[in-house]
Amino acid sequence: MDASGQPAPAPLLAVRDLVKNFPVKRGFLARAVEEVHAVDHISFAVGAGETLGLVGESGCGKSTTGRCLLRLVEPTAGDIRFAGRDVRALRGSALRMLARDMQIIFQDPYASLNPRMTVGAIVGEALIIHRLVATRREFADRVVELLETVGLGADHMRRYPHEFSGGQRQRIGIARALAVSPKLIVCDEPVSALDVSIQAQIINLLEDLQQKFGLTYLFIAHDLSVVEHISTRVAVMYLGRIVELAPAAQLYAAPKHPYTEALLSAVPIPDPTAKRRRIRLEGDVPNPIHPPAGCHLHTRCPRAMPICAAEIPPPKETAPGHTVACHLY
């Protein structure tokens, strides 16, 4: 997939042929005997100021992809370029400086905040690490500013994370990510652990922040309706590969890949009288240690053909900016 037909001339983030295999260690002296193919040659690009939604079911490699971008997980192969810089070549302090450009918001607001640090210390940690403030006064002012940006107050600074609700904690996590004034934020299922009523507030907050600070998001989710609301473009992943990538409106109106069709047909319609043709995928997701040959979906695809088991379908641009990896097209 070549820059995914994105009209922006130089994307902020360009990923090409990213691969991440996790060794499975077993037996005497813990030799790596097998590998989990978590991310299998994926390519995409994110333009400045846009939101790329990344959807797929559990275990399809979307979180691993996000962590590879920040080098929280070391990619096995591939090329990651952020604003033209080769992210995979960064070492030591240069790698730590990457944190000032790229940040991450985590899924679990309970596990992602250090229980022994005050909210002020959590939000302000990056200011100390990167020496962004000179005095205590400046530190406190900046932390209060960050807390207010996400809808919390100065009085929350001295409290501990356990004193907050899930939605408030997620706001703390967002404030922490904003502290370095990043250009791109990987949102790793930021609302999946929250109540539906609070999900909307957090998504609105993320949208407000995007406008205010000109942020770029890689928005990971397993819920298509959440992604539809916030994304400019959407990439659908299945078993470590991107099967379809298209502008959001286009993907939801006219999905091409059988997997995308099946996912969309599973989204509930808030109208009890509405009928829809449900596409059911039979069986379970195959084991990523031994993924099926050819197209990963062929074992479950209702429209599978002989060629699907033999050859990996190359990504094909069927319309401007709309790429599908399927032998049907």
Partner: peptide, 21 residues
């Protein structure tokens, strides 16, 4: 734990991860 990963994502050096988190 995710909070350690979060600190790593903030660019915290190894000693800081160990001593603070």
């Amino acid at each position: 734990k995710e909070f350690v990963e979060a600190a790593r994502a903030l660019g915290a050096p190894q000693w800081r991860l160990v001593m603070h988190h």
